[in-house]
Design a binder for these strands. Structure first.
Lengths: 304, 304
DNA sequence: CCCTCGTTATAATCAACGCTTATGACTACG
DNA sequence: CGTAGTCATAAGCGTTGATTATAACGAGGG
């Protein structure tokens, strides 16, 4: 046989993600600068390779099936790994002082950092290595010179380090435009949010931890109806009316702007946390570290 | 332009990994059932796409350049993510009770579990979700029914759980056949190991933590000369004589068997740790959980 | 009630990529 | 000094994948 072990097509995975984001095969094709039939046949090829129905074709557009949403979750991780490879290779090629050693808490590393690193891939290439550590461990890592830039939550600033608050993360409840909640003017109560069947990341995700913690403070716990493996998949699921979700405002800024998703006000819950970048006092930041901080600042000013 | 954003070729990445493992383009081609010129042109295409020299061609074989080793580290992660996608898609297709929710300590999750999950991809497909948690947290996760199977280190067994020791991990010092240490009969001392420039994973890796801890017990610290992002890359680097490395015996079993690498005895250090699988008492294990335990047992009996 | 816009599927055509086989050059080893 | 192993190059060819044009279908507005 000619092809014994064929991998899923990377371009098809990208197209599938774009379909999840745009709700249309044609628009996904435009994003990737190919014709609509080309995108159609590629996605069809992916479906036949995986032997799964990923997309519900409708004459009004295309929606992802539940299987499709799950595949988008995995596809996001594949594409992230590939972007890391491309970025690292660029760094090697340009032979910059491109080592960027990061340390971050689990929550920052899992959810916020990927968002921040995305623009870095396009501009300043760097061989990024990431170490997970809590705030106390970060100080020890700096003492041993094992890290260039760290991210901590909370107010205390370890000795010998300087820092800057780079982000105040705010979680928002989002629903599809047709959802009953979408026209509310009176805020939701914490109890109403806790009782609603939510679409969420898996346990251990930073966003989910913040939600659980905020509800626990008022003696409640969330009701999780569906778990998906990536934020893109969750946004697509919410858009198809699967249910409300709680996501970082940063992650849904674009969808809120063009009303593909609607934010629902909530009262009686503190759904924020502040993140601070820290680095060695009396020390210059490396080029990629400065680029990362700049990218974070730019992103914050756009969305905030 | 026709191709604006082209991804690196996945098959070429696989070939590069195989070159790292076999030391020859031709043998890498045989692994993937293609002809030698096809493999050659594909790797050359990867080099031109990344604009990096990845492979040193020699008439006696092919060795990876330092850049090539780094790329192998990233490529391993891309391929792992892609295998997870393929495995998850298989699970969806067969519609099994294929949810397998795992909880493991950071060390187990980072190093041991990937090895254990690899055979699972080929046999019983499962949508694997992994949560990192220490031994105490694992008990809480079981209480909330958020996990099917856990992995803990240490001797104590939490209430309400049954368990089985699945692995006694042993780290070994490995060098290339030509290395001065390769013919030693008297074991190394801990001090000699600490002074040698090692090839290692990044800080935070489970294997590295065990090494650091074992040396710290006798008042020493390792000397890390080169950091690479995957075990495959480290094995290739050691094979080219870059220096000794400390790796799990499981990871180097094949290389030790055909003498591509040589194990060096060490004295005065405890480089072992035992890992125990735990699950709910008075409860049946799911099909994928049983498959995973079976795969672990099979792997242990082969390598031990 | 109909028309128009936007969406997806199908068909025909053509260019380009990638694999295979065959061959040559070079090196290490016995 | 020959043999076995390695990689590079060239020629031939099949297959894949892209484009354009067209048809069919549903929703929303006049």
């Amino acid at each position: 046989m000619t092809t014994h072990n064929e991998w899923p097509d990377l371009v098809a995975l990208e197209l599938l993600v774009s379909v999840a984001e745009t709700g249309s095969i044609r628009q996904a094709a435009m994003v990737h600068h190919i014709s609509q039939p080309a995108a159609s046949v590629r996605i069809r090829g992916l479906e036949s390779a995986l032997q799964l129905r990923l997309v519900e074709r409708h004459t009004t557009g295309a929606r992802l099936t539940p299987d499709g949403l799950a595949v988008v979750g995995w596809a996001d991780k594949v594409l992230a790994a590939m972007r890391a490879l491309a970025s690292g290779a660029r760094a090697l090629r340009l032979d910059e002082d491109s080592q960027l050693r990061l340390a971050a808490s689990l929550t920052v590393a899992e959810y916020l950092l990927p968002t921040w690193l995305a623009p870095l891939y396009a501009t300043t290439p760097a061989a990024v290595s990431l170490r997970m550590a809590n705030s106390e461990e970060v100080a020890a890592l700096f003492a041993r010179d094992e890290v260039d830039l760290g991210f901590v939550e909370g107010a205390s600033l370890p000795d010998g380090l300087q820092g800057r608050t780079v982000y105040r993360d705010e979680l928002v409840v989002v629903v599809a435009p047709g959802h009953p909640w979408s026209k509310r003017r009176t805020p939701l109560t914490a109890a109403m949010l806790a009782d609603a069947p939510l679409v969420s990341r898996e346990p251990g995700s930073g966003t989910r931890q913040v939600l659980v913690h905020a509800l626990a403070r008022v003696g409640l716990a969330p009701t999780i109806a569906v778990e998906l493996a990536s934020t893109t998949a969750i946004k697509a699921a919410v858009g198809t009316g699967l249910g409300p979700a709680v996501l970082s405002r940063l992650a849904v800024a674009a969808e809120l702007a063009d009303r593909r998703l609607v934010a629902v006000p909530v009262t009686g819950l503190n759904l924020t946390r502040s993140i601070r970048a820290v680095w060695r006092a009396r020390s210059e930041l490396s080029a990629p570290a400065r680029a990362l901080l700049g990218a974070i600042a730019a992103k914050a000013s756009v969305s905030g």
